[in-house]
Design a protein around this nucleic acid. Sequence first.
DNA 1: GTGAAAGCGCTAACAA
DNA 2: TTGTTAGCGCTTTCAC
Lengths: 349, 349
Amino acid sequence: MRFEAATIKDIARSLGFSPSTVSRALRNCNDISETTKQLVLDYANKINYTPNPIALSLKARRSRSIGVIVHEIADSFFSQIINGIECIARESGYNVIVAQSLGSYENEMSITRMLASRSIDGCLVSLAPGTTDISHFTNLQERGLPIVFFDRTAEALSGHKVLIDNKLGGFKGTHHLLKNHCRRIAFIGDSPHQYITGLRLEGYKKALSEHHFEIDESLIKYCPYGGSDPYEVETVMHQLFYADNKPDAIFTSTDKLTIASMRCCRDMKINIPGTVALAGFSNMDNTDLFCPSLTVIRQPAIQMGKVAARLLIKTVESKKPLIEFERQMLPVELRIGDSSKGRVHAITA
Amino acid sequence: MRFEAATIKDIARSLGFSPSTVSRALRNCNDISETTKQLVLDYANKINYTPNPIALSLKARRSRSIGVIVHEIADSFFSQIINGIECIARESGYNVIVAQSLGSYENEMSITRMLASRSIDGCLVSLAPGTTDISHFTNLQERGLPIVFFDRTAEALSGHKVLIDNKLGGFKGTHHLLKNHCRRIAFIGDSPHQYITGLRLEGYKKALSEHHFEIDESLIKYCPYGGSDPYEVETVMHQLFYADNKPDAIFTSTDKLTIASMRCCRDMKINIPGTVALAGFSNMDNTDLFCPSLTVIRQPAIQMGKVAARLLIKTVESKKPLIEFERQMLPVELRIGDSSKGRVHAITA
DNA sequence: GTGAAAGCGCTAACAA
DNA sequence: TTGTTAGCGCTTTCAC
């Protein structure tokens, strides 16, 4: 199956002009006679001519497409991000090429190689959970490919970054639970090596300190696979709830963990919020319809995608090489549901 | 910011060969001496040479990328579809360009124009809700672009199609409600012009007939904007529940409508499933955590994406023009939750 | 105002 | 085995 389309040459031949004249007419140069121009335009229109973007790309040395690498496309947060990116990209005449690392560092490497061999003008990246070696990105950056990192970044990475205030997110959630009279709040994070997990934990600790609670390290748990492996959440929950000193609240640092913890509680017949209050990061829609409705820390994902895409396109289109890297910080939102009511009931009862 | 990379010419110059020799060495042709080959490969490796895919595309007249047009990326069903497409595409060495029509026919047109001007080898399409004129697609098909339609197709479209058995989906959901002793089941669909809505409605009617219930047209309602406009669902619900003869169950034909109906019931203080049972199409994850857990008809979205992508790539890579169009039908799944318990309680009580 | 020619990076037919 | 040449579709000097 081949897709043959008319070229400038075809038009030139049919009309008896040279290719360059046709090219000029099509691009509305002013050193061309009105009659020729009209002739060419009419004919081009008639045969439904569209320029070959590949040829344009080869000539212009840019493809007008940008890559997006995320952990998984079918994830509420990432799909919202892609949504935002696509809006801005299309507005600016760029195509968006999506790729998912699906949790594997190897995938991320091969995707990066595939995308970056110059078929994209720039790239938007959220690191795979397991990525610690970032040389495949720094290589590209050294070769001049603009990259904007969002959400899951690493401190060692240089480049534009778009983030929420992760520490504030951890703080807000924990603070909210404390205000609801929770006293033993467990923290469940994904990998302790994740940069943003560390920040969210810092926020958690800050909230505890401000309320003059001591930090109990036995309440801080990690799920290195981020909850993709259901057993790891289960294990953590067992550790927490078959201990002597059980938590009366859980704060989870990612979407997957929030949902998994909720499911675990249901399976273990732990009542939310009666026995344990729950709050955590999540960008799922409709968590207000959950049973109980969830208290979540929500990232402005579509907005993040838009900001990141604008930043990338600005960089791509800028003539001068960039020296300073921007770091955009977006607000986080606390959405209060019933899952975090915690000790309020116990106390008012 | 420009991204300069080494070319075959550069290597040729440095090593004192001709570009064609270098090209041959790099592509491991067998009519080249071992020594030259090694020399070239080593040097290419050293300078981190990667071929320019744009140039390759221009030469090969294909870009190794496929387009995907969906209504909205940040939607559970579509993001799962894209996930599946991406998996297969990457396996086969294709990039995936995503675009969202966001409900507008005009967007769909301009996206189609932008994508299709030969920068993609093929396209996967789910029609925008408002699309009735499909000439922008048939034009492309006539010009030879392979298109595979999935989910929201139109009868008038020719081309490969990947669908679930929509009628069976409508049947299964309705049948399930009937088995749970619901007797007045309302059907809420998106646009009556949508091909798949019609099919789902057929299934609904078939189930009613099989159970010897008459079809009450006053129980069949439509939301032309598919629930994007919250008021239209509200309006429909008011019509249904402020009537003399209220329904005791609702069957909804799309994800958005299912969720919106549930939310409406909550706002109108209509108890699910006590007062009204609810079942409907949805591909949201975690609807088992809803309050009550949802009974849903679920499409194998990731699988659909994979099947559609395989079909498209097969077509793209096939030499002969295609005459017969395949129509792949995938199974639907009924996931039973508490929302559809309906009259069971009333009767056993 | 228009045409000829070169070149973007690569491959392939043909020569040597 | 290697080099020369032409061409994919387009733009852009440089002549005329």
